[in-house]
Design a protein around this nucleic acid. Structure first.
Lengths: 350, 350
DNA sequence: TTGTACGCGTTATCAG
DNA sequence: CTGATAACGCGTACAA
């Protein structure tokens, strides 16, 4: 590997000059044009690549962020990741990504590894499972700028970027109501989950505004399970239950897309048609939502936007720390408005 | 940030002793137990975290791999990633992941960034788009151990890990044939794509073995488009075309799941039922395949396995370079056997 | 333009 | 046996 010293020797100047010229530092103005050119040429010829490790050591920054995901296969994660990557690319930061797989041990080990690598900031793409495990402390301990994306941790104190769940729930209800649905079944999220509570609040808010009564027997709660794809099974199972009890409903609002997809499976397997016999609405707009037939109507979380806003927030915090302008990051969660995507699983009341 | 010097001072020993003890180096045997304990305790109390940048600089290794993905949202990528992460976690390597988004410029920039960061090896999760752009040279240039996953680049010279496409094609045909299907439509992959060619070869091999004639009019080729999700649209469009021409077929074998999902959409929208009127088989077994209704029958690529094998291969190559045992990595592509997953989109000929 | 101390941990060599 | 000293890896930045 060719070092800056090699280049210096070959160009017959000092390493200082090489560094100055290659970085186009202010002092480069005082370097003779001919010398500059020579250095540039030699460096290229020799295929010199500065060692970022050494640079980071010296500059005390790594141009690196750590991203902790709860499950890389979850489309929610990858959506956020895409946005995060984009924002990082724009400022030439590189991400370490660590897939926690919903395991506490991994979370802690990865966190340690990332800190040892001197990442400048941390992004945590979370789901409800991050709740049980009180890793929040681990996060709060380290002074390093951190942002949580995707779910609201009660009193975590960590800056958060989320979708406006309440608005989403409201919009979904509005849509179903407009189509004439009055008997609506709900597959709510796990009870302790803040997001679930907020979505439900949006639903209730809408119902109140239209004096629509929500039938308690049509409201079921998802258990909180560790596997993200288990949402599918849960949705299928709960819907099957509803069907088994002969409950009447013409529409179903699911906690998220995975749940909705499971619900559809149960409906179709019972010989019902979606949306003719029952409309279904999801939440998230993960990739599979659009790929199934019929395509899922859902409340789209602006995943890429969540990711990029989160990165911007972390970067801002990093700068704030550097400049010691302590009025760094907003304490309030950053809330991003979702968007209803009407596709094929909803239709007028049959 | 607390450094090794701080710990040394606080434990009243030299930095050397601290390093030796904390790393449990061979020399640690010669350190008095009491001293050891003191160092350990002080280090923990002070929350000392070794600076991996400095360590890497000294040891001339980074314990880091670079992973280039063509599109982080593609379920194929994330499947491979999961396996890769797992294998890396086992040896405490951390991945930089760079999402190329099928853009040449990004590929080159990221590649440069990764090399500057002294990643020890490179993993390229590729799809057909990596073909057009002759980035292979860029890869071959750098001496750094590299493995390509997921698609076979003709004469690239870069070690590759792939699924046995031919076996997969064969298995899919076998399944359809056993169900009684004889009029089978094919949505082949892009013509220049090696994987597509191999799958097709598997199909033909089976047909020959049963003296089954393949109707040329039922064989269509996908265009090669840049967006991974475009496979869906292409599948839908080509199937629509087939239907429009009133071609008779009782089963359809798609290039991959995305294509298959698109085909199903077209079939259902034409009033046909899957699998009653037409069976459909995909290839890959990406997550959405199992989530749709009906669930897709498909040839599963062992994605995690591809990822972990790829990482193991890179690590092996890294070690080979270090030990200068030049008989490093196999020149032959590593081929992993796929598995037919029978779900709901295939049934006996109607 | 250059010399050189510095950032931080590792390890070979040396002294007690 | 026990521990310290110092060179090293590489690029940066300031004084000269």
């Amino acid at each position: 590997m060719v070092t800056i010293r090699d280049v210096a020797k070959a160009s017959r100047v000092s390493t200082a000059s090489v560094s100055i010229v290659l970085n186009n530092a202010p002092l480069a103005r005082h370097v003779a044009a001919a010398t500059k050119e020579r250095i540039l040429r030699v460096a290229k010829e020799m295929g010199y690549r500065p060692n970022v490790l050494a640079r980071s050591l010296r500059r005390q920054n790594s141009h690196t962020l750590g991203i902790l995901t709860f499950d890389i296969r979850d489309p929610f994660c990858t959506g956020v990741l895409e946005g995060a990557f984009e924002a990082m690319y724009a400022v030439s930061y590189l991400p370490f990504v660590a897939d926690v797989r919903n395991e506490r041990k991994r979370f802690e080990q990865y966190l340690e590894m990332l800190l040892e690598r001197r990442v400048e900031g941390l992004l945590v793409i979370a789901n409800w499972l991050f709740m049980d495990i009180d890793l929040l402390n681990d996060l709060a301990q380290n002074k390093i700028p951190t942002v949580i994306v995707g779910t609201l941790m009660p009193q975590s104190g960590v800056p958060t970027v989320i979708t406006d769940n309440e608005a989403g729930g409201y919009a979904a209800m509005e849509h179903l109501y407009a189509l004439g649905h009055r008997k609506i079944a709900f597959l709510r999220g796990p009870r302790m989950l803040t997001d679930a509570a907020l979505r439900w609040r949006g639903v209730r808010a809408f119902a109140r505004s239209r004096k629509l009564r929500l039938e308690p027997k049509l409201v079921l709660d998802l258990p909180s399970l560790p596997d993200p794809f288990s949402g599918f099974e849960a949705g299928k199972h709960l819907t099957g239950q509803l069907l088994h009890q002969n409950r009447r409903f013409t529409a179903l609002l699911a906690y998220d897309d995975m749940t909705a997809l499971g619900a559809i499976r149960a409906l179709v397997q019972s010989g019902l048609s979606v949306p003719n016999d029952c409309s279904v609405v999801g939440f998230d707009d993960i990739a599979p939502a659009a790929l199934g037939t019929p395509a899922l109507t859902t409340v789209r979380q602006p995943l890429e936007r969540l990711g990029s806003v989160a990165v911007d927030t972390v970067l801002k915090a990093i700068r704030a720390v550097k400049d010691k302008t302590l009025h760094g990051v907003a304490r309030q969660p950053l809330v991003i408005v979702p968007e209803l995507v009407v596709r094929e699983t909803t239709g007028p009341r049959g």
